[in-house]
Design a protein around this nucleic acid. Sequence first.
RNA 1: GUCUCAGUAGCUCAGCUGGAUAGAGCGACAGCCUCCUAAGCUGUAGGUCGUGAGUUCGAAUCUCGCCUGGGACACCA
Length: 556
Amino acid sequence: MNIVEQVQKKLKQEIREAVLKASLAAEEQIPEVILEVPKEKAHGDYSTNMAMQLARIAKKPPRKVAEELIEHFDKSKASIEKIEIAGPGFINFHLDNSYLTQLIPTILESMEEYGRTAVGNNQKVQVEFVSANPTGDLHLGHARGAAVGDSLCNILDKAGYNVSREYYINDAGNQINNLALSVEARYFQALGLEKEMPEDGYQGADVIGIGDRLAEEFGDKYVNVPEQERFDFFREYGLKYEMEKLKQDLENFRVPFDVWYSETSLYNNGKIDEAMQVLKDNGHIFEEGGATWFRSTTFGDDKDRVMIKQDGSYTYLTPDIAYHKDKIDRGFEKLINIWGADHHGYIPRMKAAIQALGYARETLEVEIIQLVHLYKDGEKMKMSKRTGKAITMRDLIDEVGLDATRYFFAMRSADTHLDFDLDLAVSQSNENPVYYAQYAHARISSILRQGAEQGIIYDLNANVSILGSEKEIDLLKKLGEFPLAVAEAAEKRMPHRITNYIFDLASVFHSFYNAEKVLDLENKDKTVARMALIKSVQITLRNALALIGVSAPEKM
RNA sequence: GUCUCAGUAGCUCAGCUGGAUAGAGCGACAGCCUCCUAAGCUGUAGGUCGUGAGUUCGAAUCUCGCCUGGGACACCA
């Protein structure tokens, strides 16, 4: 707990104490103390609406309640400088903010650990994301899911959760057969032979590439082998090729995974049968029309779902249920799935399955990633995966750059539609919000470099108590918020809270930079203290950027 | 038709557990480099928070209806 959290806690305690001493409410009647930072600086450092909340219980007008509360408030505690009643009954606290300078040694000592909290309680959380079919290139929606998922994992980790990142490989079922047939067609075509693409074949350029590669490597070797052998070979080859490319693309996008989980493995190790058996034992399975059904309506789904089709094969749902059972069997207490908007209708049946297996519905959380629309020259770009005309994640990174892409995806809440302005993201100018934060970091680095050249040394023991100007206090306040911002982003599963924080911190720094000079040879003590301050800003900025996978350059 | 997400400044979006005069960026306008990076700073203009009701001391925020837009509603994955 840093000094800011300690002061807030103290303040809340004192407010409760005052309520009791003033006999405004009995102990069990007191609502949770809400402290907020007023938008208006004139309204003090913190304010509480306690008096308004108590008005009914105390049967007195809010301002009267506030007066009595203040009367019994012990001002000697919690650095209080002044207390005022304002508006309809707010109580505004003005603090002696000199305590904030204690943040500096805390941050300098914590370094890359600053921001870490234990709110997650080491809970075992698994985040499954991207999980795109290995049948083509990752597109924009996947890129957004990857960026949001990775950022969320970083944030959860920082907030004290025990996180595992997982990718579910859909390497079974029709779409892979389709891939095999598409590869086959492209292979024949690469050799100049006639071969039609399957009806729902993958038209992407990457499959053409696989065909070319096969033709080059093996010549016409596979033209005249038995069909089944050829099919099996192309299936394996295509899958391996697509997966390698996928892994490489994600790695380039700074998105690592701990586990790559194969759907096929569920078929081979009996886990599907196992899951089916549990559902059967729990009485949620029935036969009808030659198919085997899961009675998901018991748990609020719109209709029951087929698990084994008339032809004896599984639907997509069946291995997926086994997969989720396996996740829980592996000891995860919370499963977070990050899905594209098109899978949105799938949530109720998956949650139903979790319940039918005998677990709490809330074990599974699904975060939906809404669609991305690309705009260029003010116009929406059309794309279609079927015809292979989609812009791929790789195209996007090549054109926009890694940092800008990550930042753009992280900065919008994931469940709203995103209009991605290519021209804006590409622009290397002040129009681009990505550079704003990086620029602040580079500026700080530059000042610290020059300070060092002039032999100015600061350390944990720098006398920071001499800091206290308005801009310095603004900076310190913002620095103190970081652990809270991370904790809140984690608990609400909202990575974009972090970009908001980054922007705010950078903004306060730029403002400070323009108002006050750091390096001042006439006043060495102040220079040392300010260098320690901006070093703290640099550390915090870098930590925050790391959470969303954006680099913190020393120079720009 | 059912479900779901959204609608906030000209554009793109924030807005916390319901709080005070609804905020940023871009764009427009006016200023700031003899000074650590002007990719920056300071200020001005710009709003019926889609709409109608309800809940209450108080609603952009919660509830319901309606309008508009996106998406999902397979024995596909």
